[in-house]
Amino acid sequence: MSTRPAVLRMTEVSGPEAVWLLEGSSLGRLVYVQREQAVVRPARHVWEFGSLIVRTPTPAAAVSVSATYQVDEVGAVTGTGWTVTASGPADAITDPDEAAHYKRTLPGWVHGPHDTLVRIRPQTVTGFRFAQGTEG
């Protein structure tokens, strides 16, 4: 008797569903380019007023003019779940009152020069679900 690995099916979700998944999560990864290399940093986020506010251990000077944010929930055993990616123009939040608000509401990993708040105004939000499927 042979045991075959489960077959997973990847299905694209609509833009509104991708935003809904993103809103329901709080932990992801900020991706940006620095010195011609992709850099990935863990981050916490909140979706507000059509923007993604991200708190990440990244120097503010490293924030590029555009960034990508990726979040997922995938079961380690089953491989089922979802992934969402949002990309668009980005800028560091420098207003002291606005920064104080987000630092109170978004937990961070570090404090000091590498504790940065980034606003991403997504131009694209895409997502996929991973589900058990059938071979065929």
Score class of each variant (00 low, 15 high):
residue 108 G to H: 14
residue 23 E to D: 15
residue 98 E to H: 02
residue 31 V to E: 11
residue 123 Q to I: 15
residue 73 E to H: 05
residue 107 P to H: 03
residue 24 G to R: 11
residue 19 V to E: 10
residue 124 T to Q: 09
residue 111 H to N: 08
residue 37 Q to V: 04
residue 84 V to N: 08
residue 21 L to F: 09
residue 44 R to L: 06
residue 7 V to L: 11
residue 89 P to Q: 04
residue 72 D to Q: 09
residue 107 P to K: 13
residue 63 V to Y: 03
residue 13 V to Q: 06
residue 132 Q to V: 14
residue 43 A to C: 03
residue 119 R to D: 08
residue 17 E to L: 07
residue 79 G to R: 07
residue 107 P to I: 03
residue 112 G to L: 14
residue 89 P to D: 00
residue 34 Q to C: 00
residue 70 Q to H: 09
residue 28 G to F: 02
residue 132 Q to I: 07
residue 116 T to M: 01
residue 126 T to Q: 07
residue 123 Q to G: 15
residue 27 L to Y: 14
residue 136 G to S: 02
residue 59 P to L: 13
residue 14 S to P: 00
residue 80 T to Q: 14
residue 34 Q to F: 04
residue 112 G to S: 11
residue 39 V to G: 02
residue 96 P to I: 07
residue 62 A to V: 14
residue 117 L to K: 05
residue 83 T to F: 01
residue 123 Q to T: 15
residue 125 V to R: 02
residue 102 Y to L: 01
residue 56 T to V: 14
residue 44 R to A: 13
residue 43 A to K: 05
residue 93 I to L: 14
residue 120 I to V: 11
residue 4 R to N: 11
residue 22 L to D: 03
residue 88 G to Q: 06
residue 15 G to H: 13
residue 90 A to H: 03
residue 60 A to T: 04
residue 50 G to D: 13
residue 36 E to P: 05
residue 11 T to G: 09
residue 39 V to D: 02
residue 25 S to M: 12
residue 21 L to W: 00
residue 30 L to K: 01
residue 100 A to V: 04
residue 33 V to S: 14
residue 134 T to L: 12
residue 68 T to C: 14
residue 34 Q to W: 04
residue 44 R to G: 06
residue 134 T to G: 14
residue 35 R to K: 09
residue 84 V to F: 13
residue 48 E to T: 09
residue 5 P to Q: 09
residue 81 G to F: 03
residue 31 V to A: 07
residue 104 R to K: 12
residue 74 V to G: 04
residue 22 L to H: 04
residue 127 G to D: 02
residue 133 G to A: 15
residue 23 E to I: 05
residue 36 E to H: 12
residue 105 T to D: 09
residue 129 R to F: 00
residue 45 H to W: 05
residue 38 A to E: 08
residue 125 V to S: 07
residue 60 A to W: 10
residue 34 Q to L: 01
residue 120 I to S: 01
residue 124 T to L: 11
residue 73 E to I: 08
residue 105 T to A: 11
residue 119 R to K: 10
residue 68 T to R: 02
residue 64 S to W: 00
residue 52 L to Q: 09
residue 32 Y to M: 04
residue 113 P to K: 08
residue 118 V to S: 07
residue 3 T to K: 10
residue 129 R to A: 08
residue 65 V to S: 09
residue 95 D to R: 10
residue 101 H to Y: 10
residue 116 T to A: 11
residue 87 S to R: 12
residue 28 G to E: 03
residue 33 V to H: 06
residue 127 G to V: 01
residue 108 G to R: 12
residue 99 A to I: 06
residue 55 R to E: 11
residue 36 E to T: 12
residue 36 E to Q: 15
residue 54 V to H: 06
residue 36 E to N: 08
residue 110 V to F: 12
residue 22 L to R: 04
residue 98 E to W: 07
residue 77 V to S: 05
residue 62 A to T: 15
residue 108 G to D: 11
residue 118 V to C: 05
residue 113 P to L: 06
residue 127 G to A: 08
residue 32 Y to C: 05
residue 5 P to M: 04
residue 76 A to R: 03
residue 84 V to Y: 02
residue 74 V to Q: 03
residue 49 F to T: 15
residue 97 D to S: 10
residue 54 V to F: 08
residue 7 V to E: 00
residue 94 T to A: 11
residue 88 G to W: 01
residue 18 A to T: 06
residue 133 G to E: 06
residue 128 F to G: 00
residue 70 Q to D: 05
residue 105 T to I: 14
residue 107 P to T: 07
